[in-house]
């Protein structure tokens, strides 16, 4: 993203290690896990989102640094817990160590997050940030809990899916935007708007992930685990008659472990996605949510120029 800003983030993290004196192997694990999913050199996406939100309301880098790093560590811990639960993303460093150690690593990251935000000098702002992170953790866990519950459901409504996604993915992005606004000393109404904008960013990210993983389902566990992703929910709710029965039957048998997916099933799913409009549907929902995000940004009473970077994330497609 921005080499100079990244250097500030790295320096803040070095400072954390100096203060906390972690076991050298644990410190190495934290370092290799940070940005491990970054493929194009754009590091610290969570810290950067927090920074963008702070800048949007008129704050500066030094105001937001401890909160931005706290957010980055918090989100990484969530990712690790998620991957252990889903047994997914095997190429990640935390999936190449025993699960027990990966759990240790994630707990350590949560503690480092607390340590990072404790550097916020203003006591009131510190409490606001800590409260936001804790509430986010609870909301995300509720979403995750719901997701696992739905694995065993034959049918999930769109309302249930979007509620779960708001909690699971939206809560984290909402937290990054909210912390940025808090540390940028925005007014309460602006903080709430930024939080709402963040919820939508999370939903957008989840729609992209769900579609990508559905189209790449031989490599992902979502289909095997009968995860109620958006493509899956769409098919379960729109297919009718014999087609609906065949799809439900296949997802159920695969998730129960009673059946191994064959090449012909892969072809069938691909064909289904194409003929029933899985991609257009996900694209429609993506663009509707982008529009909602733009409407929220429009209402935020800050100079237009401050919103530019956030607007680019949800730009209109002509």
């Amino acid at each position: 993203m921005n080499f100079q800003v990244d250097q500030y983030f790295f320096r803040e993290i070095d400072g954390l290690f100096d203060k906390t004196r972690l076991d050298p192997e644990m410190e190495r694990l934290v370092r290799v896990s940070l940005n491990a999913d970054c493929t194009n050199g754009e590091y610290f996406r969570w810290a950067n989102l927090t920074l963008l939100s702070c800048e949007c309301v008129g704050g500066e880098l030094e105001d937001v640094l401890p909160g931005a790093i706290g957010m980055e560590l918090f989100a990484l811990a969530s990712d690790i817990f998620d991957d252990i639960q889903d047994q997914d993303n095997e190429e990640m460093p935390w999936r190449q160590i025993p699960d027990a150690q990966a759990i240790n690593l994630a707990i350590c990251l949560l503690m480092l997050c607390e340590e990072a935000i404790s550097a916020i000098p203003d006591n009131h702002l510190y409490r606001e940030v800590a409260y936001s992170l804790h509430r986010t953790g609870i909301r995300a866990i509720n979403g995750q809990f719901r997701e696992f519950m739905y694995d065993s459901y034959k049918q999930v409504s769109f309302e249930q899916y979007f509620k779960m996604t708001e909690q699971k993915a939206g809560s984290l992005t909402a937290c990054a935007c909210k912390i940025g606004a808090i540390l940028g000393k925005a007014e309460t109404r602006v903080i709430q708007d930024m939080e709402q904008f963040g919820v939508i960013l999370g939903i957008l990210g989840q729609i992209i992930n769900d579609l990508k993983d559905f189209l790449d389902f031989p490599k992902k566990n979502d289909f095997i685990n009968n995860k109620k992703t958006l493509p899956n929910v769409y098919l379960l709710n729109t297919l009718q008659g014999e087609m609906a029965e065949r799809f439900k039957d296949l997802t159920q048998k695969v998730s129960e472990g009673a059946y191994r997916i064959k090449d012909m099933d892969r072809e069938y799913i691909k064909q289904l996605a194409l003929e029933e409009g899985v991609v257009p549907y996900c694209t429609v929902m993506y663009e509707i949510y982008c529009q909602k995000a733009r409407e929220i940004l429009e209402e935020i009473p800050v100079p237009e120029i401050n919103k530019e970077k956030l607007k680019r994330l949800v730009r209109e497609i002509k």
Partner: peptide, 17 residues
């Protein structure tokens, strides 16, 4: 021809979640 795709901005910043 049935190959519409989501066109997110060219930034990984959108890939939270």
């Amino acid at each position: 021809g049935g190959t519409v795709a989501i066109e997110p901005p060219i930034t990984p910043l959108l890939y939270w979640g």
